[in-house]
Design a protein around this nucleic acid. Structure first.
Lengths: 252, 252
DNA sequence: TTGTGTGAAACTTTTCACAGCG
DNA sequence: CGCTGTGAAAAGTTTCACACAA
C-alpha cells in the first residue's frame, strides 16, 4: 500500500517481513486488553484467537522478533507488550499533524486510539480561514499558511491528509518539503512522493468495492450466472453503457 | 483482512486472485478520471502510473479478467471501465447501512465516494435515542431498535460499523442475524462472524503504527543504533522470569 | 513497430508438522 | 506432557522477458 516502497533491499539481519509488521499492532491490541485484565500469560492459541489470526502464523511472526515465549507455558503478556511496542517504535511519542479538518479530519482528531498509542495530535490544519481558531477536539485549528512552521517547531515527521482529493497532492508536497517522511492518506488519490517517504492509504470506497465483489459472488452462487457470461463484443463504438455506465464522480 | 475468509476453494474457473481484486478499484478510479477527460485509450504503462502500480502487474491483473486490450495500442477506457465495474459488481446498486453516527459515522455518511460508486446509504442507525430523527447528511438517523426492520425492508446486505469498540460485536451479531453478509468494520476490535459473512476492517491506529515502525527505522539508519541494541536489561540474564518485568533481550 | 498477454522464474507469505525445551 | 520455535512444503504474488497480434 505504500507508495514510497523502495525500501532498502534490507534482507539483511533484521528483516521483519512486511506482512508480520502489519500484524504486530493487532497482537499489541489483544495483548493490551489481556494486560488490562491482569492476565499474566497467554498461549499462542489464545492470543491468536483474540487477534483473529491462526496460531502458526502468530508463532512464526513472533519468531522474527526473537524467542520471547516459554515452551510448555506460553508468552508473558507484559513482556510481549513491551517488546512489540519497542519494535513498532511506540515507546517514543510521535507528534502528528492532521491536514484537512472536514468531517473526516474532525473524526480523526477526536479518535481516542491516537493518543492511547504513542501518537499525539500536534496540530490541526485547514485551508479555510473561517476554520482558523476554532477548537476541534480541544485543539485550535490553524491555517495552512502555518504548516511549515508548525512542522518545524514540533519536529513532526508523520502527517495525515484528510483533505479533498483535489488538494491532496499539493498538501503532500508541502508536507514533504517541510520534512514529513510518513504520510497517512485518506484522500482518494494516488500521491507521488520522493524516495524515502512512506505513504499508506485508507480508502473507504475501495474497501466497499472489495466487499461488493465478494457479495456479488455470493449472490450468483447457485444459479447459472447471468452477469457472469462472456463479455460483450469488444467493438468500441458499440457499448457505451447499455445498463451500466457510471455517473463517474469523484469526491473533490 | 477479511475474517470470514473461508472462501470456497474457488480454484474453479473464474478465480481472480485476491490481490488483483484489491487493485481493481484503483484501476477503476484512474480509468474514471481518464474517462472524464475523454481520453479514448491508455497503455498499460500510462494507466499503471496513474494507479500507482507497475505495468507488468497491471497487465497480469487484467489478464485474469480476459483479453480486453489491443496489442500495439492499449486499452479502450470506456470499455475497461465497464468491464471492471461489472466484475466488481458495481453495475448494481448496493444499499448500505451505517451503524454508529458519531464523528466517524457522520463523516462516512457525508463521504461523497459512496454514492458515486454504486453504493447508496439506505439508513443511519444509532443507539442514542437523542440522535433519532436528527438529520445527518440529509438522512434522518434512526434508532437501533429499527435495525432489523430497516435491513429487511431495504434488502440491505452490506453494513458499516462505526460504533465504539465495546458495542461492535453486539451490533455485528444483530446485523448478521438480520441478514447482512458483508461488513466494513471501523471499530478497533476483532469481530467474530459465522462462515459466509465477509468482514473487512479499517483501523486508523494500525496504519499509524505501521508508519511508526518504518519511521523509526529511518531514524536509526546511519548511526550505530541506540534503540536497536538490547533493551534496558532486567533480571533477564537467566532466561525469562515468570514474573512480568520489563525488558530482557535479544535478537535471533 | 508497438504494447499486450503470458509462461516461467523469483520472491513472499502461509501452512504444516514435529523436534525439543521446560 | 504442553506449547514454543522452526525447518520444509505449499500457496500466493510479483517480476521478467519475449512471442506475437494489430
Amino acid at each position: 500500500m505504500a507508495t514510497g516502497r523502495t525500501h532498502r533491499p534490507a534482507t539483511r539481519s533484521r528483516g521483519i517481513p512486511e506482512a508480520t509488521v502489519a500484524r504486530l499492532p493487532l497482537y499489541l491490541r489483544a495483548l493490551t486488553a489481556l494486560s488490562e485484565r491482569s492476565v499474566p500469560t497467554v498461549s499462542s492459541e489464545e492470543l491468536a484467537a483474540a487477534a483473529g489470526v491462526n496460531s502458526a502464523k502468530l508463532r512464526k511472526d513472533f519468531s522474527y522478533l526473537g524467542s520471547y515465549g516459554t515452551r510448555g507455558v506460553g508468552y508473558d503478556v507484559e513482556y510481549l507488550v513491551y517488546q512489540i511496542s519497542r519494535e513498532l517504535g511506540l515507546t517514543q511519542d510521535w507528534p502528528v499533524v492532521i491536514v484537512g479538518i472536514g468531517n473526516l479530519g474532525a473524526a480523526l482528531a477526536n479518535y481516542g486510539g491516537f493518543a492511547s498509542r504513542g501518537f499525539r495530535v500536534a496540530a490541526l490544519i485547514d485551508a479555510d480561514p473561517a476554520m482558523a481558531g476554532k477548537p476541534v477536539a480541544g485543539i485550535s485549528v490553524q491555517h495552512t499558511d502555518e504548516l511549515e512552521r508548525i512542522i518545524d517547531d514540533n519536529g513532526v515527521s508523520i502527517g495525515v491528509i484528510a483533505t479533498p482529493a483535489g488538494a491532496a497532492q499539493q498538501v503532500c508536497d508541502r508536507l514533504v518539503a517541510a520534512g514529513i517522511t510518513s504520510i497517512l492518506n485518506f484522500a482518494p488519490t494516488v500521491l507521488s512522493v520522493p524516495e524515502g517517504v512512506d505513504v499508506r492509504k485508507v480508502d473507504l470506497s475501495i474497501e466497499l468495492q472489495i466487499l461488493a465483489f465478494h457479495e456479488q459472488r455470493k449472490a450468483g452462487e447457485g444459479e447459472a450466472a447471468e452477469d457472469r457470461l462472456p463479455p460483450p463484443p469488444a467493438t468500441k463504438s458499440d457499448r457505451k453503457g447499455p445498463d451500466g455506465d457510471l455517473p463517474a464522480v469523484m469526491p473533490a
